[in-house]
Design a protein around this nucleic acid. Structure first.
Ligand SMILES: [Mn+2]
Ligand SMILES: [Mn+2]
Ligand SMILES: [Mn+2]
Ligand SMILES: [Mn+2]
Lengths: 226, 226
DNA sequence: ATATAAATTTAGATTAATCTAAAAATTTAT
DNA sequence: ATAAATTTTTAGATTAATCTAAATTTATAT
């Protein structure tokens, strides 16, 4: 039996639902729909409806039938804690255990559910209080706050614009390995040499080399413009 | 869905049962009884019977009704892996995250179920391949073997015998805190000054100081005689 | 050797989380 | 405005893990 911040019992499954709702609500203020939650968790809409009711009973979400859900303050705190743990563990795996950034997600999915406040705070200290995970995503602080930096998708940059790669939107192993192959990493300086209107591809310069990237790639790389 | 060494799916609960059976079979060759397993896991005998059947179906234990169970080779490997993970995580918590030896057990109970071979091997490397956990218990190697050292309970030492504290039998927080209070730690040099036949208490010397300990304490401290 | 006690198993329920299929509500398109 | 399509909910089952209470088997004591 494990108890959360508010002294209530919470299961691994409930945490996963709450995290999914949190991440769906990241952009915009719309409620998370039943189907979107089902997609995110690779489960069925009927399962989501059941769980949503339980989460509403426990005070983690506000729910009116057919209206989707939104996290309460309580729910947001739980979600931020899980995300904080997930991202700190990812940093640990890369910084201390020699993992590469495409290997950490699945293990962090497990580690994010370990319950111990001291553990996570000591881990934070061991890692010297990192602010971002290996994919450039911000790490919520103890109170659940994240300071969001101004970043844009590479896709939105104009010709001749310059910037630094600060994150990835798609964190799939396939995409991360593609980036490794072309020496694109967090911190890389990128210049847009040209844009092709026909297929929205781009020619960009990374350090000394020049490469052609597709619209798909450009839409999954976060850049801090300079 | 998680898969073990043999490619079979295994749940956290199954792992806990297998570990309990492993630890019950540590001394002697007798089968683990249904009730002893129930006690170890704080569950009911009827639940144990059900689970035992499932473990037998999966080939982790040999079971004949009313005869208790014994781990198969397959079961022993699973158990040793879980124990290895448990103890490596305990070392990590003490060595890298400033935990004391009385705080690590419950968290290791959670961490021992994290599935990643690379994770545990890298952790092993980070910790410089420790052979014992913070309570003096040996850490199984990758293939599940543990080299057991010759140790005896302090209770068995004669008057004037000397030894070094190499482990604790009772790993409860209460006992460990008692030991901290009297500056008894792994590595402490202990001399038996006298034994009291009446209540089996002892007077022992630790470094400069002399203390009286009860039979309960003497029966829970492992000593390497010198 | 029988009776009593203890250990173990079986039977039947319960809870969490899931699913499929069908019903109901909402949204979109004509 | 009505019909069609989509989304969401409900109904009914299933699986894993647990429990209580009763039945059965094994061990112990006279
Ligand atoms: Mn998760
Ligand atoms: Mn990440
Ligand atoms: Mn466990
Ligand atoms: Mn230990």
């Amino acid at each position: 039996m494990w108890f959360n911040y508010f002294g209530a019992m919470i299961t691994l499954t409930e945490e996963n639902y709450i995290k999914a709702i949190y991440q769906l609500g990241k952009y915009g203020t719309v409620n998370a729909s039943t189907n979107s939650i089902a997609d995110a968790l690779e489960t069925k809409a009927s399962s989501v409806t059941d769980m949503i009711k339980k989460l509403a009973d426990k005070g983690y979400v506000n729910y009116k039938p057919y209206q989707g859900v939104k996290l309460t303050q309580k729910g947001k705190k739980i979600a931020a804690d899980v995300v904080r743990k997930h991202r700190l563990w990812e940093v640990f795996l890369v910084e201390k255990l020699n993992f590469s950034w495409d290997e950490v997600h699945d293990i962090a999915e497990q580690l994010e559910h370990i319950k111990s406040e001291k553990l996570i705070n000591e881990l934070d200290k061991l890692l010297d209080y990192p602010t971002h995970d290996p994919h450039g995503d911000p790490i919520p602080d103890k109170s659940g706050d994240i300071k969001k930096t101004d970043k844009t998708l590479l896709f939105n940059l104009d010709e001749n614009a310059k910037g630094i790669c600060v994150g990835v939107k798609d964190t799939s192993s396939a995409f991360l390995k593609y980036l490794d192959k072309y020496n694109i990493a967090l911190g890389s300086k990128i210049t847009v040499l040209s844009k092709e209107a026909f297929d929205d591809s781009m020619v960009i310069q990374i350090g000394e080399t020049t490469i052609n990237i597709s619209q798909v790639v450009a839409n999954n790389l976060f850049i801090k413009e300079q």
